[in-house]
Computed example of a mutant assay.
Amino acid sequence: MKIKALIIDDDEKIGSLLSKFFLGFDIEAKAITSPTQGLVELKDSPYDVVILDIMMPEINGLDLCKEIRTFSNVPIIMLTARGETLDKIIGLEIGADDYMAKPFEPRELVARIQSLLRRIARNEKPLGSNTLIAKDLIVNLNTREVQVENEKIQLTTMEFDILILFMEHPGKVLSRDEVMDLLKGVDWNVFDRSIDINISRLRKKLNDSSKEPRFIKTIWGSGYIFIQEVQKV
């Protein structure tokens, strides 16, 4: 089955080149130069991944990423000509799943896309054991839907994967290195604080707190621990 990718980049040449290159890897891409049109397209049609440029004149990619996260948890890879750490922090904080600085090798971008989608597939469980429950937190592993206090919340691919990792190891302290090892296929060299940033975002969405944790507790100097009992249904 082909992967459907949406490229939103005001550089028409880049969109065209990537679309042609992707065909050799069973990735069917649609390139759009207008952020507004890209947003409409994403709302109207399902995509497996979004490739989003940061530096665009109409709406910058960071604002567009933030808007996408209000209605979709589609994996997002940010592209930018700038490589500053601050851009990476902001991108991760608003919900991007990965980050690549221009210029880049198209083959590496393909590898990032494939890695993201493999992680999603790995977390899908057979019917009959597809729900994890911890207190008022309910996670459906097949639909990737998450509910807290009877309200659905949108998680990014990385946030969802980290949550499942903790819920599958309740009561066990996981160090940053263990999280990196267990979440195989992730290029952590992109930004080594991405785990902490994603856990911080995840806590906020779960109505959790590092000071008074309900689900994820920080063990200073050691890592993190999921403190609730987890039922598998």
Rank of each mutant, 00 (worst) to 15 (best):
D177C: 06
E105K: 06
I89Y: 06
K88N: 02
E229S: 11
L165Y: 15
R82A: 06
L86G: 07
A134N: 01
D9P: 03
S16P: 05
F22K: 02
I51R: 00
S129I: 04
I162S: 07
R69F: 01
I8G: 03
N123R: 13
N140M: 01
A81F: 02
T33G: 05
P170W: 12
E159D: 08
I225A: 09
V186L: 04
V40W: 07
G223T: 13
V173S: 02
K2L: 03
D192V: 13
L17D: 15
F104W: 09
D44S: 15
I90T: 12
R69S: 14
N142P: 01
R144S: 14
E159I: 00
P103C: 06
L163W: 02
R107C: 04
Q154V: 10
S34W: 00
V40D: 09
D161I: 08
D187Y: 00
D44E: 14
K125M: 06
N60E: 04
R107P: 04
N123E: 07
N189A: 09
E178G: 12
E84G: 08
R122L: 07
E145D: 09
L163D: 04
I225N: 08
E178V: 08
I3S: 00
E168C: 15
T80M: 02
D192K: 14
E108P: 14
F166T: 10
T218V: 15
D98N: 13
T70L: 14
F71T: 00
E168Y: 10
L174S: 11
N142K: 05
L163C: 11
M100C: 10
T70S: 06
E105W: 03
I195R: 12
L42F: 08
M180A: 10
S72N: 07
D48K: 02
I7E: 05
E151D: 15
K88A: 08
I76T: 09
T143E: 10
S222L: 03
P103V: 04
N198T: 09
K217G: 04
T80H: 00
K20V: 01
D97K: 03
K172I: 08
M78V: 04
M56A: 03
D208R: 11
G15E: 02
K13C: 07
L6N: 05
G185F: 11
I153W: 09
F25W: 09
F226M: 15
I54D: 01
E151H: 10
